[in-house]
Design a protein around this nucleic acid. Structure first.
Lengths: 113, 113
DNA sequence: TTTAGTGCTACATTAATAGTAGCAAAGCTA
DNA sequence: TAGCTTTGCTACTATTAATGTAGCACTAAA
């Protein structure tokens, strides 16, 4: 498994700056979404697929492997769960929810093409 | 210009849940990176390209338009800058930096293939 | 020994990103 | 006013990532 590793070249930093490595990891389709959906508790592969409403098994599998390699999630008998680190980062993402709620109000009527 | 709009179907939410719309927006290559690099101050297109170390003009242009439509950045005579909203979200991303520094320590020697 | 559920993998298609060239417009400079 | 630069892109091609649909191998219960 290969994922954006701090210390190795990543998007935005040839030297592998840690924040850029993180952005590279989280800046992939579904990465943050999967973490978010896992906040609800352990989930099997198929259940997670449903929580996500629409995600191909190919992509889900890839993200799960990357996030596992990145130590953010792990697989248990109950299914996939957030690790301690995964939970930490979830808590850091949490404020985005409130912010996005306000942000969303800007696009209610503003229906540009 | 088309970008993940709250209220419209986005990745992870057919109803356009705001946090999922935000994840869809930020979960694209370079989106968070560009916001991050713009914290340093106004930047022209070409200068921004250099700050990013490696980014194709195609992608940069696309992200700039999306982020502009999303009200996070704008173009001024001095170049691209973060808007008030853009700065807010940057501040929310800021804690990730410290976290990622600690996270990175897990991958110093752990050099798996 | 069937049946059902789970965790994927295969494969084909479409979309996103990269990488390189270079053009049109604006601002010097001589 | 004719060149020379810089800037902000766009065009184009190549490569990589994501989608969507099928279905296989495994486990467990009936």
């Amino acid at each position: 498994m290969k994922f954006p590793t701090p210390g190795k070249p990543v998007r935005g930093s040839k030297s592998g700056n840690h924040i850029m490595a993180l952005f590279d990891l989280l800046g992939r389709s579904w990465a943050m979404g999967v973490l978010w959906k896992l906040r609800e508790g352990p989930s099997t592969f198929r259940a997670l697929q449903e929580r996500c409403e629409s995600i191909s098994p190919t992509t889900l599998n890839k993200r799960l492997k990357e996030l596992t390699a990145a130590l953010l999630i792990e697989r248990t008998v109950e299914g996939y769960i957030l690790t301690a680190k995964g939970n930490e980062i979830f808590l850091l993402l949490l404020p985005l929810e409130k912010w996005s709620r306000e942000w969303a109000t800007n696009f209610k009527e503003t229906d540009e093409k």
